[in-house]
């Protein structure tokens, strides 16, 4: 069984938002909404500053509260790669999953269902990288199987320092940020 995840190199990322634009066109994300976004995290005081730039999106958590709380089963874990998905036809738009996600990864599509990053499963199943990964001009994003020790993502994690977002929230995120 595969377990898809992303490894994003914050050292290379320039926060250009190409990943956000690409998600928009690839997935026809409605105006005013985004499935991914950039966080510019600045610490310190001028001029002694540190900045980490992160491309953020649904973490496809190993322990996904959004799936647990969904009353209809619309939010589910996909068989391929353990990707967390929403079955739009089952969703009643109760927003429980929106409230349950510590990352704010979900929003309600104007058509009434919960939407979020799909890890571009339609591309991945065709053997392509997710749209955001494939466009990133700095090549700072990597996608692959975390359970395969020889995958690019696994080797990067083995060789570089990294962190996840809000690990204390207990969701076991599967997007890792190299520092």
């Amino acid at each position: 069984m595969s377990r898809y995840g992303m490894v994003i190199d914050t050292v290379r990322c320039v926060g250009c938002m190409d990943c956000v634009v690409a998600c928009k066109t690839e997935n026809n994300v409605p105006e005013g909404f985004n499935r991914d976004w950039i966080a510019y995290d600045v610490q310190g005081e001028f001029p002694t500053l540190q900045m980490e730039i992160r491309s953020e999106r649904c973490n496809h958590c190993d322990a996904p509260p959004c799936v647990y709380c969904c009353p209809t089963g619309a939010s589910h874990v996909h068989d391929v790669g353990g990707v967390v998905l929403v079955d739009y036809d089952k969703c009643i738009g109760c927003k429980a999953c929106v409230a349950s996600c510590p990352y704010g990864a979900r929003f309600i599509n104007p058509e009434g269902y919960a939407e979020k990053c799909t890890f571009c499963i339609h591309r991945v199943e065709e053997g392509l990288d997710p749209a955001c990964v494939s466009v990133c001009p700095t090549h700072c994003m990597h996608f692959g199987d975390l359970d395969d020790p020889n995958s690019e993502v696994s080797t990067l994690l083995a060789s570089r320092r990294h962190h996840t977002l809000m690990p204390e929230a207990g969701t076991k995120p599967r997007i890792f940020y190299l520092t």
């Binding site: 250009c16 938002m17 190409d18 956000v20 634009v21 690409a22 066109t25 690839e26 749209a131 494939s134 466009v135 990133c136 001009p137 090549h139």
Partner: peptide
Amino acid sequence: KIEGNPDDPLSRGRLCPRGT
């Protein structure tokens, strides 16, 4: 959508956000 042309030495197959 618009993507980079992998044959192109300028974009090396990846556009900038404006190009996308």
